[in-house]
Design a protein around this nucleic acid. Structure first.
Lengths: 202, 202
DNA sequence: TCACTTATCTAACGATCGGTAGGAAATTGG
DNA sequence: CCAATTTCCTACCGATCGTTAGATAAGTGA
């Protein structure tokens, strides 16, 4: 079946290497030269296999979400809301400080700001973060309905609050904060969890 | 005294405009063309007045810290630790969603990641964030010494925790989250403040 | 008025950006 | 062995990057 000259590199391995570059330098900071050098392929090979820089980033992002970022969906599937939050915090702390990949979170630092040319990538990351927060919100809604959280708790607010803490941990990690220190942030957040509903608005 | 042809633009106003550009696009995303266009001056004027792109950014950053970011030091000077934390959270929520400037925080989104050429700018921002966290830590140490916080509280952990929340709020704002929603994050953080010391480590 | 200083502008610099033509090399099917 | 197909690489594309040379204009001090 496979006709023509066979590809000499592993597409998935190359994509993993591209992911590392985008993760550490961001979309704009990662040049095609950076990428091809790390991936061990030439520019025409990159373009033939992945389309262009933007498509390559999107494929790397998908791979990130299913790989190093996969703990997020795993955490959401935990049986109790307490376990969900615990796993999100602890796994995030470890994920953003993993020793085998760049620090931080691709969805945060891939393009938090950018020039005009990368605007659509930035929007893609905004959407991904919003999607994660939305999934979290729905999980909280279920927990409230099942009586796992106090009456009057606002699922959207809880999701925004926890998302902010996770993103803050990612910023800290991107700046070089150690795994131990980031874990302490997670522990402190957990020590106060859940924040009680705002009685003033009930 | 003033010899030579007088400058035709206001350096401080031009710097404020440059700040807006760096704030919304980040260091790498802001091109010299973007900057000169917004500042209303030509490239040679920019270079003669500000040195180069890196120096311009550092000057804009100083201006940011003393201007839109000035609430941070103001908050630290509040008399009670409760007031410090309240002001940090509320003023941050408003600052990162201010209607008269780009959303988010320059110290976070100016260069969270970048290419090799901007590495020193990224480090500068890492240092600034660390400095803010250190100032906060010292304020917490004072509060603990004065009995304003529970025995066994760890000032460094509290500072890292609060810093992460503030940075998370900045990420949310950079993604377009509304002022009302960011304020709710601040309120929730305040509702659980202060996190109790970890009894397991005492 | 005339040197001196500084700011202004147009026009360009070399380097790098993302992206591609075009031909040689390696495989499959006939 | 030969066409067809696909990947490989070298070399190059135009555009943009940050930065500057060089000439002109507008002030000050003598």
């Amino acid at each position: 079946m496979a006709m023509g000259r066979p590809r000499e590199f592993d597409v998935d391995k190359a994509l993993d290497l591209a992911l590392q570059v985008f993760w550490s330098k961001g979309y704009e900071g990662a040049s095609i030269a950076d990428l091809t050098e790390t991936m061990g392929i030439t520019k025409p090979s990159l373009y033939s296999a992945f389309g262009n820089k933007e498509e390559l980033f999107r494929k790397a992002l998908d791979r990130y979400v299913d790989g190093p970022g996969g703990y997020f969906q795993v955490a959401l599937a935990k049986p109790t809301i307490r376990a969900v939050v615990e796993h999100l915090l602890y796994e995030s702390a470890d994920a953003v400080t993993g020793p085998d990949h760049p620090p931080g979170c691709l969805a945060v630092q891939g393009a938090l700001t950018c020039g005009d040319a990368a605007e659509s990538i930035k929007q893609e990351l905004v959407s991904r973060r919003a999607k994660g927060e939305q999934d979290l919100r729905e999980r909280f809604e279920r927990a409230i309905a099942e009586g796992e959280l106090p009456q009057g708790s606002d699922a959207a607010d809880l999701a925004a609050y926890l998302s902010a803490i996770l993103q803050g941990m990612a910023v800290q990690a991107a700046g070089g904060t150690t795994r131990e220190q980031v874990r302490k942030i997670a522990e402190m957040a957990l020590r106060t969890w859940p924040p009680p509903p705002d009685l003033a608005t009930v």
